[in-house]
């Protein structure tokens, strides 16, 4: 959604905006982001969800475990706002814990995948030639097996329960490839830019060029890709847990809750709908934030995703 409404003819006009308050680039990016209404609303909603997931368990009476005091299969009511399960869990308690675990996995994956993927992609793009060809074949290897299948196979193969960080590590191990591709593409085109050549002509070393020119200019796409990776990781983790190959009971995640309530959607809808809605809202807000960031950081970038 970044197409110009104006044909290319009057190019010089936008360059004449000398005058007015001087603003730093960060402020400009911020103001552009704030103008993106969907992204701003999303940010607020997401922050509220994160707060609820991490602070909620301290405030709410019930945790995510089975308690004898909890009656089975109670529909939402004053005692249990989101009802209870057949086994005797409080659904609100489960929901907060589940969201927390899901978010922890997603953020860890995003950080891991972004760091590994950016370094791999940047090196591949910067050195080019045979190094690039070789490094990209490795990325291909990571991309030819469907992601969810791969991580589910590994995680499910582990006996005796997988914890949230194991799940995060397994997803992270496979999820960096897409980022590597994005970053490589950006670096490849940046490398040919005249301002990089200008730095070379001034005698700059490769490390100077990478730190001063390539990384700052690639930061935008990397931040956007990292944001979108959070959403990808959330859906992956949810899918794994739904198949019961993710985080294992007694711990809980949102996907697992949906998996457990799979056959109860019509009889006990309070078990089935809340975790799904929460997953949907979290992913939706993250995608909107990613979109807003893209517009704010680089208005010309187009939407590329799997």
């Amino acid at each position: 959604m970044s197409e110009t409404k104006v044909p290319p003819a009057p190019r010089s006009t936008d360059a004449e905006s000398v005058g007015g308050a001087e603003r730093t680039q960060l402020q400009m990016i911020l103001s552009r982001f704030v103008r993106h209404r969907a992204a701003m609303v999303s940010l607020v909603v997401l922050v509220l969800i994160v707060l609820g997931a991490f602070l909620g368990p301290f405030l709410w009476r019930w945790d995510h475990l089975v308690h004898l005091e909890i009656p089975a299969s109670v529909p939402p009511g004053p005692e249990h706002p989101l009802g209870t399960t057949t086994a005797g869990h409080d659904v609100l308690g489960q929901l907060m814990r589940g969201a927390q675990q899901t978010l922890k996995v997603a953020f860890t994956v995003s950080i891991m995948g972004t760091v590994v993927g950016s370094l791999w992609g940047a090196a591949s793009g910067y050195y080019g030639g045979r190094v690039d060809a070789l490094m990209m074949r490795v990325v291909d290897v990571f991309m030819i097996v469907p992601l969810l299948v791969m991580v589910a196979a590994i995680a499910g193969n582990v006996r005796g329960g997988t914890t949230w960080y194991a799940v995060a590590l397994i997803i992270g191990f496979f999820a960096w490839a897409q980022i590597a591709r994005v970053v490589r593409g950006v670096v490849l085109s940046l490398r040919e830019q005249e301002f990089v050549e200008a730095a070379k002509a001034a005698g700059a070393s490769p490390s100077w060029i990478i730190v001063r020119h390539l990384l700052p200019n690639a930061a935008g796409p990397i931040i956007v890709a990292a944001t979108l990776l959070i959403a990808v990781a959330i859906l992956l983790e949810a899918g794994m847990s739904f198949l019961q190959f993710g985080i294992q009971p007694p711990d809980i995640s949102l996907g697992q809750m949906i998996g457990d309530a799979r056959t109860a959607a019509s009889t006990r809808p309070w078990l089935f709908y809340p975790p799904g809605v929460l997953l949907l809202v979290v992913c939706l807000t993250i995608n909107f934030i990613g979109d807003g960031l893209r517009d704010a950081l680089d208005p010309r970038q187009t939407m590329v995703r799997r």
Binding site: E194, F195, E197, A201, A202, N217
Partner: peptide, 17 residues
């Protein structure tokens, strides 16, 4: 002692500096 000036004034300056 040896310096270079480029053709494209839009591409030769790092937009983030």
């Amino acid at each position: 002692d040896l310096q270079l000036v480029f053709q494209d004034p839009f591409a030769s300056l790092d937009p983030r500096m």
